[in-house]
Structures are given as structure tokens and as C-alpha cells.
Amino acid sequence: MINVRDVYKSFGIVKALQGVTLFVNKGERVVIIGPSGSGKSTLLRCLNHLETIDSGTIIIDGTPLNDSKVNINKVRAEIGIVFQSFNLFPHLTALRNITLAQEKVRKRTKEEAERIARSLLEKVGIPEKANSYPAQLSGGQQQRVAIARALAMQPKIMLFDEPTSALDPEMIGEVLDVMKQLAREGMTMIVVSHEMGFAREVADRVIFMDEGRIVEEGPPKELFENPRQDRTKAFLSKIL
């Protein structure tokens, strides 16, 4: 489903990714951990072509991303991404945030888009906030709307870029619950997060990144309890 091969990416002199290779199967749940600046967010953004890669290949569902013939907007509509800072459109209600791309990109009718949006708001637990503006919602509620907005496109893959790190502690649970439910339904997910409980419960595989490389990967139990690499050990000892 996701096929990343030998990807390099730098910002000026900063080498963000230095030869990353990663395969993710359909229905697999992958959690990426690592210190800040390790390249984990950059990798996620490259998967959605928000960053262009310097070399290597990324193939998503059979479509190579750095092929100029590919309509990147079509590919993006198949990949949902949830940002750390929500990035809801502040001038639109929660409902409209969810329906806009359905109508303009997926070409659904207004009625159909609204029906889907309302059922998704139900699913993320805030059906009563349909007509609220982002500024009227708490961080946790905003992030749940953002998840609903991404899900409305019926993506094949969901990417989460530190979805809970901008949230107050009491709101983290409500967002993680939505993500756990998605995982149970079989969504292919790549999550950058330091929520170890979430990783233990949901992930098929945990990847530890440092300095633009994948240092170690494995099932959560194995990686958390018996890390092989010193750098992984050092990192885990700081956060566990």
C-alpha cells in the first residue's frame, strides 16, 4: 500500500531524511516515535506530497508521487492527514469544514456531503457542534472535527502528525478514543505520536527514527521492552 524507498530530503543544510525505506501494508497500523528533529513529521508530510523529496521513490497504492504525470490532488484525496495544529478553516462552521472538500473535490451533492458530515460528527462524538465555528470549540473538539474532515474524503490511508501534542491533557483521551476506533475498523494508519499507551494498544509496528533514519522497528511489546539499539534505549528511558 505504501512503499517508501531510499528517500532523501534536506532543508538547506539540514538533512531531514537520510535514506528512509519503509513498507506499510493495507490495514496495518504504524506508530512512529523519535526525538524532535528526527525527521518523523517530514516523512509523514512527504507521504502527502506537502514536501517534495530530493531523491528516492514513494509509491502509494501503486501511484508514484514524484511523477509529474500524476494528478497529485487525486492522490491526496485518498490520503487523509491530521495536523498537530488542527488547521481547521476558521471562517467555516464545523459542518462546512467537513463538507467543503466533499463537494468541491469529490463532487458530492450538498445533501450527501451533509449527511456524511453529520454521521461523522456523530462518530467522533460531537454531533451538537455542527454549526459551531472552530474558535468556539475546545482543542480536543477541533481535532475531532479535523479527523472527521479527513475521513469524509473516505481515504484509504490516514496520517496523523502528532495529533495530541497541542492538546491539554484532559482532552488527549477523547482524540485517542476516536483514533482507536478507526484502528479497530481496519483503517491503514501511520501515526507520529509519543502516546505510548496508544502505541501499545493499537500499533502493529512501532518505528523509532533518529537523525533522519529509521533506527529500529518492531512490534510495540518487543521494541518497548527489549530495544536492541542504544539510541532507542536512551530515548525510551527518557519518555517511558
Binding site: 490532488n73 487525486k74 472538500a101 474532515r149
Partner: peptide, 18 residues
């Protein structure tokens, strides 16, 4: 307008014009 707004829109599949 924060860069994140443009990224969110592009990640939903909007074209540049949209």
C-alpha cells in the same frame, strides 16, 4: 494566512485555484 491552512486544503485534494 497560516501555511497550515494551505496545507490542509491541499491535503484534502483542493487544486491551487480551489
Amino acid at each position: 494566512i497560516p501555511k497550515g491552512q494551505i496545507e490542509a486544503a491541499r491535503s484534502l485534494g483542493f487544486t491551487e485555484i480551489q
